[in-house]
Design a protein around this nucleic acid. Structure first.
Length: 346
DNA sequence: AATTCGGGGGT
DNA sequence: ACCCCAGAATT
């Protein structure tokens, strides 16, 4: 039997019920695909529910403030997705009369929509024959066909896209695309795949040559760099604190944080006190400094390990405008800050 | 072609 | 400690 038939048959039996599988409305499919970029279904699901509840239409999302979109996105990571989501909603609402583009080629032009997402929307919403290639597809195809081209190389991207495009069921592109991803996610898993009950095992090169553990091949990325973050948690006598919005490039763009002092290494209280005496928020000011966590909290991101200490800075009056402590949960913050806010019980 | 964007979960 | 996730944008 041909590949797509086996695959779609497997899918008809094993597919999970997921909310975005109940619709072909481009707004909901687009939203789900952005949320699910580099994000497992289990992690993205509550965010999909929250966004559809708060923003039932593209116009509702377009009319929101970016701060509110980021707040709802808080904790999901890769925050450029949220900023691009909002920008694209505005574009579709304002320039396209609320209608999403209905072809792969036009979908590709949207901010935050690349080859994978354009293919997913085009196939699921408009039955266009355009194969998706995500992490699951790379794994399934590299194993079944024994392809050892690195999946995170430009050569690999072209090769696997072409292979998927040859395999896709031209009469059921939406079913095929979702089936191959579901198969990779729940059966042909990275570790301990269920080969014993796999309908493809007879023809699977990786299985028959005992190469399941070797495929797919991926070029290793550089090790994460260490950084040392010191956050100044101001507390004034009238119960206000300071949050600042992150500007420019880098992580957590447009999210809020306590004033940050980055150092070369973890600093002890004595050294830190003398270090920040000349800080612009503390010069010519009386303050009491308390170290909240003696052991640095290590927050691990893909490319950075953040060794973090929170310093409580008690002052009489804030040097600049602050916010009432009771309002601190209204702001979108990195989860590292959010966890501290909960633990400190602001 | 490489690097940089998060955070959660598995092994 | 290392890997992966319904990838995209920038350098």
């Amino acid at each position: 039997m041909i590949f797509s038939k086996i695959l779609i048959n497997w899918y008809s039996i094993n597919k999970r019920e997921l909310p975005w599988r109940k619709t072909t409305n481009p707004f909901y499919i687009w939203l789900s695909e952005i949320i699910l970029q580099q994000t497992q279904v289990k992690q993205g699901l509550p965010y999909y529910d929250a966004f559809t509840a708060k923003y039932p239409t593209v116009f509702d999302l377009a009319n929101a403030n970016e701060d509110d979109v980021l707040k709802l996105w808080q904790g999901l990571g890769y925050y450029s997705r949220a900023r691009n989501l909002h920008a694209t909603a505005k574009h579709v609402a304002t320039n396209l009369n609320g209608n999403f583009p209905n072809t792969y080629k036009e979908l590709l032009k949207l901010k935050g929509v690349g080859d994978y997402t354009a293919s997913a929307i085009a196939s699921i919403c408009f039955n266009e024959v355009e194969a998706v290639v995500d992490g699951n597809v790379y794994r399934v195809l590299s194993r079944y066909f024994g392809v050892s081209t690195p999946i995170n190389s430009s050569k690999g991207a072209k090769e696997f896209k072409l292979l998927a495009q040859k395999l896709i069921d031209k009469k059921q592109p939406a079913e095929f695309n979702q089936a191959i991803m579901e198969f990779g996610a729940t059966q042909c898993k990275p570790k301990n795949p269920d080969c014993s009950v796999c309908p493809f095992s007879k023809g699977c090169i990786a299985f028959n040559k005992n190469l399941i553990g070797e495929l797919p091949v991926k070029i290793k990325s550089a090790k994460a760099k260490k950084k040392h973050f010191n956050f100044l948690v101001f507390i004034s006598e009238d119960e206000q604190t300071i949050l600042q919005q992150r500007q420019g490039k880098g992580i957590w763009q447009n999210l809020y944080q306590f004033p940050l002092v980055e150092t070369e290494s973890t600093v002890d209280p004595k050294s830190f006190k003398s270090l920040i005496k000349t800080h612009e928020l503390l010069a010519n000011q009386q303050f009491e400094l308390l170290l909240y966590n003696k052991e640095a909290i290590v927050h691990k991101l893909s490319h950075q390990h953040l060794y973090t200490q929170f310093w409580i800075v008690n002052v009489g009056k804030l040097p600049i405008n602050g916010i009432p402590m009771e309002n601190i949960r209204d702001f979108a913050v990195p989860i590292l800050i959010g966890d501290f806010i909960e633990a400190f019980n602001f």
